[in-house]
Simulated assay, not measured.
Amino acid sequence: MTLSLSTLTPQTGARRRKLRKGRGIAAGQGASCGFGMRGQKSRSGRPTRPGFEGGQMPLYRRIPKLKHFPLVNPRHFTVLNVAKLSGLKAGSTVNLDTLVASGLVTSPKHPLKILGSGDLDVKLTVEAAAFTTSARAKIEAAGGSCELID
C-alpha cells in the first residue's frame, strides 16, 4: 500500500465524537451543560481572561519581584585578579592577548575584567573591558594606568 494524502486516516480512537450539550438529561450534559447552576464560570462567553486568579495578584505579575531570577542578557567576562598581574614585567602593556601568551588566561572566551583581590607593586598599562573600583585604585596606586576597551 502506498502512502498518499488520500490514504491517510487517523489512528483508531484518536478522534472522539463531539459532546452534544444541552440536549436533555438523557444525554448526560443537559440543561446547564456541566457548568453548574450559577456563578461567573457558568455564564456564556469566556468567564475570565487567561491568567486571571480572582483578583489575587496573578503569577505572571508576582514572579519577577522574587529573587534569584536570571538576567535576560547577562554580560560575561574573563576575570583576573590584580594579584596575578604582580608577576608581570614592569612597564609592560597588559591585555587579553598578552595574558594568553603569558599563560595567565587559558580560555579567552569573553572580554577581560580586572578584579581587585590581592596587591600590585609593578607599574603596568592595563587594557580591559571592565575594572572594579578597587582594582583601578590598586593599579593607579602602583603608578600604572587603566584603559577601557570595547
Rank of each mutant, 00 (worst) to 15 (best):
M1D: 05
T2F: 01
L3V: 05
L3E: 10
T7W: 04
T7K: 08
L8D: 08
T9M: 09
T9R: 12
G13H: 07
G13T: 00
A14F: 03
R15C: 07
R16L: 03
R16A: 03
K18F: 03
K18Q: 09
L19G: 15
R20Y: 10
R20K: 13
K21T: 12
G22A: 08
G24N: 08
I25S: 12
A27R: 04
G30W: 05
G30K: 01
C33N: 09
G34M: 07
F35N: 14
R38P: 02
G39V: 06
R43M: 14
R43T: 03
S44M: 11
T48S: 15
R49F: 15
G51P: 08
G54A: 05
G54I: 01
L59R: 11
Y60V: 00
R62Y: 09
R62V: 00
I63W: 10
K65A: 12
K65R: 06
H68Y: 09
H68R: 06
F69A: 05
F69M: 02
L71V: 05
L71Y: 06
L71G: 10
L71N: 05
R75V: 07
H76F: 11
F77M: 10
F77Q: 07
V79R: 11
V79S: 11
L85H: 05
S86N: 15
S86P: 12
S86E: 15
K89N: 08
A90M: 01
G91A: 06
G91S: 09
S92Q: 10
V94F: 04
V94D: 07
N95K: 00
N95Q: 01
L96K: 04
T98D: 14
L99V: 04
V100K: 09
A101C: 09
A101V: 10
S102M: 02
G103R: 06
L104E: 14
V105L: 11
S107Y: 07
S107V: 06
K109I: 03
K109Q: 11
P111F: 02
L112W: 13
L115V: 01
S117F: 06
G118Q: 05
L120E: 12
K123Y: 01
L124M: 07
L124I: 00
A129P: 05
A130K: 02
F131Q: 06
F131D: 14
T132Q: 13
T133R: 13
T133W: 01
S134R: 02
A135Y: 03
R136Y: 13
I139M: 12
E140Q: 15
E140K: 14
A141L: 06
A141T: 12
A141I: 00
A142N: 14
G143K: 13
C146Y: 09
C146G: 07
C146R: 07
I149C: 13
I149E: 12
I149V: 15
D150M: 01
